[in-house]
Nucleic acid binder design. Structure first.
Lengths: 221, 221
DNA sequence: GGCGAATTTGACCGGAACGTCAAAAGACGA
DNA sequence: TCGTCTTTTGACGTTCCGGTCAAATTCGCC
């Protein structure tokens, strides 16, 4: 950033120092996040993480202020996935119901994918007061958006009369709990789970009475 | 137990020593469990718990072997609630669908009630290896029973064709995640949540096409 | 080969919290 | 009132772990 690097010798096949720094930091975050998800924040010592990375604990502090910052960054990245899914659903769905199903499916695919393996959706309590406020605020925003999708769906007739708040809690719980049992190398691929969960959600909230697409009111008009 | 107490003077209005012991131990478990749920196992020091109870940490060790035992006992009690709900559903439900709905509703009512406020369904990872095995085995048994209810429901026609394993994961996630947001003094009473969640589950898995009770086949016979 | 900056290390500090123990305090019957 | 058993205490030992720092090592470059 502040260091002037004169030119792109070797066509940049060799990474710049800044790039290496970023890469190493990312690896640290990923590995620590994995450990956090697997054993919990407080049960994961930075000595452990360092050993996994083949360095010393002290080296980690060159890339990160403290343990808490690692946890915070992991949370931020996890939330990024949520917002990505939200954008995707807004762009590709029409009715509230469609948007919600796309959101659900996309979100599950993301967190079960390569990037999401270090998403620490649990461990919220381990955040210190300041960081917890930030994460909570952002999560509330996500929740509100999610809830409005439900309200919109009820308004446009694609979703039956349900309580938006409880419905979102219901489904977010089902998703967040996945960190407890989902294993990337397990028997169930993320896509299949995504499909199944989205289907369950669909039937739970859809205003359609049959399993068929919800086209009854307009179909005969 | 081993001490001979001669008679029931004062009609036992004053509790025996054994009773007091049991009562105090229960209070310890309850208060510790509350703290565990609220702030997490590792963030709860026994000094804190002791202070809440108005005693010293050392006193706790008169009632309990160590911190781990407290966590284990809390898990056992939480699982007791699950089995209570399971029995209830088996006795009062006919079809697989009915049983599952009763189970879901009862279970939520129990864990949101007085007794369940110290149910630490999270914090599974904090158990040590030995205890974790015990709890996991018992939980697996519960899961298998739950899954068979789904299978039975599919067999008897009350539930549509869903994957029992994923469906149970789905719903257990929604329930277990409640420990994250449910507060006994919050705006939503446990019964209302129980009703709503059971309704969402019903629509998610029911083979009935309308919202009406699933009595179509026999109604006209 | 050698210089300076970037990176890593090993040793160490301090605090937090579990668990222990001998001694004090309390309860209860004789 | 006294003696014994139960219960509680305060002080302490110990371990673990987050975080620091000066020194050593490595790396890129002239």
């Amino acid at each position: 950033m502040q260091r002037g690097r004169h030119s792109a010798a070797w066509k940049n096949v060799v990474l710049s120092r800044d790039q290496q720094f970023a890469l190493k930091r990312a690896a640290l975050l990923r590995e620590a996040g994995r450990a956090f998800s697997a054993q919990g924040y407080h049960d994961t010592s930075l000595d452990d993480v360092a050993k996994t990375l083949g360095v010393t604990k002290a080296a980690l502090y060159y890339y990160v202020k403290n343990k808490q910052e690692i946890l915070f960054e992991c949370h931020m990245q996890a939330q990024d996935l949520g917002e990505t899914a939200l954008q995707y659903s807004e762009q590709n769905g029409r009715t509230g119901r469609e948007k919600i199903l796309l959101l659900a499916q996309k979100y599950i695919e993301l967190i079960t994918g390569e990037m999401g393996s270090f998403a620490v959706l649990g461990e919220f309590d381990a955040l210190d007061a300041e960081n917890r406020t930030i994460i909570a605020r952002r999560r509330d925003k996500f929740d509100r958006h999610f809830r409005r999708l439900v309200s919109d769906g009820i308004a446009d007739g694609s979703i039956r009369a349900v309580d938006p708040k409880l419905t979102v809690f219901f489904f977010m719980g089902a998703i967040n709990w996945m960190t407890r049992w989902f294993r990337p190398d397990g028997p169930l691929p993320g896509e299949e789970i995504a499909r199944h969960f989205a289907d369950l959600l669909d039937k739970a909230i859809s205003s359609a009475q049959a399993a068929k697409p919800a086209v009854r009111t307009r179909a005969r008009a």
